[in-house]
Amino acid sequence: MAKYLLLKHYRGAPAAVNDVPMDQWTPDEISAHLQYMRDFADKINATGEFVDSQALSSEGAWVRYDGEGRPPVTDGPFAETKDLIAGWMIIDVDSYERAIELAGELSAAPGKDGKPIHEWLEVRPFYGNSPTITE
């Protein structure tokens, strides 16, 4: 019973094995990829492990406070940023091993030539509740 974030990157992750960008796939390969992702979400929904999944636009900006009475400063888009997050899935599972297993499965989504992308996904544990009994 612990939550994990499976993080997918546009940029910043180590190179995948089957590292061909989607615009060079056939339409059928794209469909097969999207179907795999939907099936995966359905599967962990059925096992009661799904919490949330979102995809992020690659557009965005940096924002910071710029002092009393001044509008926030913005900068961007992220042209210079090395690390760019593409989206996430949040799962609620019984063990770290299970989180790794599911992330591995997600990374096997098919890409070019219908072969697994072997994409690197980042797995990050959520902070849990502080337990009542500690001593």
């Binding site: 019973m1 929904n45 096992t47 609620d92």
Partner: peptide, 15 residues
Amino acid sequence: AYLVPEATMAQRISR
């Protein structure tokens, strides 16, 4: 209580 969607918990229980 466990901060998961109701549909997820329903699946967990039915499973």
